[in-house]
Amino acid sequence: MNQILEFRQTFPEEGLLSNLFHDDHEAARLSVLESYEILDSAPEKSYDDVARLAAYVCATPIALVSFFGGARQWVKARFHTALFAEKPLDLPCQGFLEALSTEQGQVLQVPDIALDNRFTGHHLLQGSLKLRFYASAPLYSPAGELIGSLSVFDKRSRALATEQVVALLTLARQIMELLEMRRTLIGLSDANAKLGQQNLTDALTGIPNRRAYDQKLTEEFSRAKRTGAPLSLLLIDIDNFKQYNDTFGHPAGDGALQSVARVLMSSLRPYDFLARYGGEEFVIILPSTDLSDALVVAERVRGLVAGSEFPHRKFTISVGVSRLDIEAGPRALIQAADNGLYRAKAAGRNKVVMGKLNDNSPAGSATP
């Protein structure tokens, strides 16, 4: 059998039944329910179908799939005939949980609720409901926690036939299989999200990588095109980094890249986006930022790096700055910034230069 669908029902020892409402048992039950992410979840056809089948095989007008969460019995799925439409079927937790736990995994049958003091005064007996018969199959997690039930109700006093009892237990197992599949899918989703995050993160520096930059630039370009807001970009290169690597070794170079990334990250505004572009190059996307403001940010970043302490020696950076031309597109944005970076390095490094498309000639800079 597919392992995803396999589970073995275990039940609390008899001596533990009186402790079902103690904090540790309640915490364990809630922990299991949280792992399924089932409480207060949206309606799902698979659970609705189980409730409908339970009502059909047991020939009852009401069937519920419910879970014991805190002081409430939360109903995940409900089937009822037209007679019970719009009528509340909120159920307390303790009376039902206590009654169900005494059955040790079997179906609980209460032929006449009115004659059972565990349900005295309950609204099921009152008003237009006046329900009499109640039967419930427990839902036990693989760890043995009683987390819910599959229940059926009727307006007349009665009992289930043997084959109906078997069918109700079978449907209860189907619910647990649905829950186990749900937990497996949650685990896969979390793992995929983590893997996706790893695919967008530079392993050395811990900041977004080139792939993440490409995605972010596409998003910001679309936003700028839609709203008309400005978009600027900084392309940053660590000056004389190859010389540093050759002198102090690649492990020291890796440490330097990590340190520079931390300094750059500390300089960002909340809405700026920093990524490692490649090698010793970094890129910063500046949403809703015009060219004049981008030059101010670039100068602040340059000064912060130049004034920071690093292992072995200080570092400086050269920065190319560009502003988006919607007609030219996002590729032109990085090309213009690259041209500015080329000019900054050609002019002596440790400078900020505004880049222009199709212009890579050495020229003046925005900083001395």
Rank of each mutant, 00 (worst) to 15 (best):
A55T: 00
L195R: 11
K242P: 06
R158C: 12
G127A: 15
L200V: 00
G303I: 09
H25P: 07
F68V: 05
N19T: 14
D254W: 03
A71D: 15
L108P: 08
P88N: 09
L160P: 02
N358A: 12
V301L: 04
S267C: 15
S222M: 11
M176H: 02
C93S: 14
G127P: 09
L295G: 09
A337D: 00
S46A: 10
P138T: 11
P230A: 09
L291S: 10
L291E: 13
K351A: 15
V110T: 13
T81A: 14
A229H: 11
L295P: 03
E219Q: 12
K87V: 09
D190I: 08
G329A: 08
K130N: 11
F221G: 07
G228A: 11
L178H: 09
L16D: 15
D359Q: 09
L217C: 06
D116M: 11
L333I: 07
K216C: 13
S101N: 07
L217V: 11
A135S: 12
R52H: 01
D23G: 14
G95E: 14
A229S: 10
A167N: 09
G127H: 12
P368Q: 15
A294E: 03
L97M: 10
A137R: 01
P92Q: 08
P368Y: 14
S151C: 14
Q73K: 10
V65Q: 01
I175T: 08
M176W: 03
R223E: 06
R52P: 00
L268V: 10
G249H: 05
A336H: 00
L195P: 06
A167L: 12
P138I: 09
R262C: 12
R72Q: 06
T162W: 04
Q215I: 15
G15T: 14
A63L: 06
P43F: 01
V353A: 13
T227F: 01
G253N: 00
S232K: 03
F119D: 05
I175P: 00
A85Q: 07
S66K: 01
A161P: 06
D23T: 15
G196H: 07
Q94D: 08
S46T: 06
P362S: 07
E44A: 02
E98T: 09
A203K: 12
H123D: 15
L257Q: 02
A114K: 13
A347G: 06
I4M: 09
L200N: 00
F273T: 13
Y342Q: 10
P61M: 05
A27C: 13
A114W: 13
V260D: 00
L168H: 00
S292E: 15
W74S: 00
D116G: 11
L5F: 11
T367D: 13
L264Y: 07
S322L: 05
R158F: 14
L257N: 01
P12Y: 04
A261R: 03
L97K: 10
F248L: 08
N339R: 00
K155W: 03
F153D: 09
P368R: 15
L124A: 07
Y213M: 08
S222A: 14
G148K: 02
Q198F: 10
V353E: 07
Y277F: 15
A363S: 12
T102F: 11
G329R: 09
D112Y: 02
S222W: 06
N199E: 14
P138H: 10
S361P: 02
